[in-house]
């Protein structure tokens, strides 16, 4: 049967008959649904993983800290790369040693001003060690 169908379909000269078209249509729509349902399941799964991970971090902030400390340990053992060897960027005009990581001076100044204002504490009484931009 399948040989007959395939033979008829692959015959480029003769018209396609309705029975073959019907069978092909059934198989075709089934494949479209299967592929898109598979994608739907994968998308849902990926979404659940991301949502779950965000929820876990909210529920157990201490896990986040553990992961950060683990990452820090890994960084300690990592072989220094040329980019790692560059000295940390120091903010100009400060007496302390504020390290800016992926953060513009202008943004850092704004953050420090906002923190000082919300704590109602003069800026010179606060000590900032580092400001790091957290990627999404």
């Amino acid at each position: 049967m399948s040989g007959y169908i395939l033979g008829a379909i692959l015959d480029k000269e003769s018209p396609l008959n309705v029975v073959d078209a019907l069978l092909l249509a059934l198989i075709g729509i089934a494949i479209v649904f299967l592929v898109l349902i598979a994608l739907m399941l994968i998308v849902s799964l990926v979404g659940k993983i991301f949502d779950g991970s965000a929820k876990l971090q909210e529920e157990h902030p201490e896990w986040g800290e553990k992961i950060s400390s683990f990452k820090a340990k890994l960084m300690f053992w990592k072989k220094p790369q040329p980019s790692d060897e560059q000295p940390p960027q120091l903010a100009k005009g400060t007496c302390g040693e504020l390290t800016l990581i992926n953060c513009e001076e202008r943004d850092a100044a704004m953050i420090m001003a906002i923190v000082a204002d919300s704590l109602n504490t003069p800026l010179n009484e606060l000590r900032f060690k580092s400001i790091k931009r957290v990627e999404d």
Binding site: I9, K12, L16, N17, D20, A25
Partner: peptide
């Protein structure tokens, strides 16, 4: 796929054309 069946029903088109 419904058009594939309709095109075949006209009897004027080969598989590739349909």
């Amino acid at each position: 796929y419904l058009v594939l069946i309709l095109a075949a029903a006209t009897g004027m088109f080969t598989g590739g054309e349909a």
